[in-house]
Amino acid sequence: MATKTSLQKVILLGDGGVGKSSLMNRYVTNKFDAHLFHTIGVEFLNKELEVDGHQVTLQIWDTAGQERFRSLRTPFYRGSDCCLLTFSVDDNQSFLNLSNWKKEFIYYADVKEPEKFPFVVLGNKLDVTERQVTLEEAQQWCQENGGYPYFETSAKDATNVAEAFEEAVRRVFASDERTDHLIPTDTVKLHRKPRSASSCCA
């Protein structure tokens, strides 16, 4: 099992301009471009990594933060294993909007048990000197909304970026294990389903 590579889909959500594309680019290609255009719709990159002995292909979906791109991005929420709620520490409004992003994700991703779904919160642009959101405020929000891990990152100088994505992977593993323990027999059945279905037809 450990040698097998699993695919995990994580999705970056948050207001326009908080640095979602920059975080993805920093993590996957280790590059930073200060003049990126607005993302239109969705984009994604794959990254191979090893977390706690597990080989993982992380598929990172970057989304458009602007409201006008809503209809383009929402169809791609489905199938996400983890959601990275992102705001910018120098923009209080982007922090206040986190709840809306969470709601939008849960609705369109059709999450069955929202309270068990792994979210990770990222406060980006740590390099900027004038903060509008304090560490305490952010931590408090994470605590009150379901005990989400919180990372203060900077895509510009690469602070905490890898750590945040690796934590996302761990969270997915953790929530998988939880569901595995809860209903182990069901999981097995799901894998067998196609075979039994085809024998039925034949």
């Binding site: 594309s21 993805m24 680019n25 996957v28 993302t39 719709g41 969705v42 984009e43 994604f44 990159l45 970057d62 791609f76």
Partner: peptide
């Protein structure tokens, strides 16, 4: 990344 997204 953009090509991946556009394709999707």
């Amino acid at each position: 990344a953009s090509l991946n997204g556009l394709e999707a």
